[in-house]
Design a protein around this nucleic acid. Structure first.
Lengths: 124, 124
DNA sequence: GATAAAGCATAGCCATGCTAGGTACTGTGT
DNA sequence: ACACAGTACCTAGCATGGCTATGCTTTATC
């Protein structure tokens, strides 16, 4: 029971989801570092401005995971007296190191991609 | 029983696997198109030359999937009289279209990454 | 006092990469 | 004659992250 949750993604287009794996984590860490400290809802806005749409169901578990893994530190804060409480995140030292590693790896991937795409044009 | 298959990947380094998802498919398609037709074992060699290590347990299921999805066409061939039979793959029309889409999407991701990484330096 | 919006959270599905095996054939050394 | 390494392909099962769908609370608006 519970049945088949009907699939929104047309078969053969899974790559659109798959290729985001890891990449979203990288971009989120970049944004957090750029802002020093930032909260979830704001992150979603800033990412969408960067043409990177990220759903809440994606972001919040991601932030939790990274906090558990020691990459982020989290603090509840009240903006002045009124307003909703917000959970602010910032990079730990381990988070900084991890991000540097990820940036390096992603740059390597981009170089490999460009070499392959270039080789392709050469053969055509 | 069967117990916990002991984890080779240190916790908190899952991103190294996750960030490859989709990316490997993209690179494999690029290589196949560049060579017009190519077989699995050769692909693994050519990828490793490109500093992109891909295991057999990753590549063969991937090639099968893409064939099932209609992105690739596969043909068994005997090299002359002797030698082992090899399965040669090449792009279908749908495979070509899909690859073009993936290239476009990856290039967008790279631009977004670069913008975020740049913004970061600006704030520092 | 109903509705929308800000803000966080979770359960469960699914596809992909990886581990760890397996098969079959050829060539080389002893 | 036999072991072994290399070529070449294949598969079951696990772990993981993104997504869908849903739920909660508080403030602001009408």
């Amino acid at each position: 029971m519970l049945g088949t949750v009907f699939n929104m993604i047309p078969s053969g287009e899974n790559w659109k989801t798959q290729i985001r794996k890891g990449y979203i984590e990288l971009c989120v860490l970049l944004l957090i570092r750029a802002h020093t400290r930032i909260y979830g809802f704001d992150l979603i806005e800033k990412l969408s401005v960067s043409e990177l749409a990220v759903k809440e169901g994606t972001l919040y578990p991601l932030l939790s995971r990274m906090t558990t893994d020691g990459l982020l530190s989290a603090n509840w804060e009240m903006e002045a007296v009124k307003g909703h409480p917000r959970k602010f995140y910032s990079l730990t030292r381990a988070g900084n190191r991890a991000l540097d590693e990820m940036v390096g790896e992603f740059e390597r991937m981009v170089r490999t991609f460009e070499r392959l795409a270039q080789a392709e044009k050469g053969t055509k």
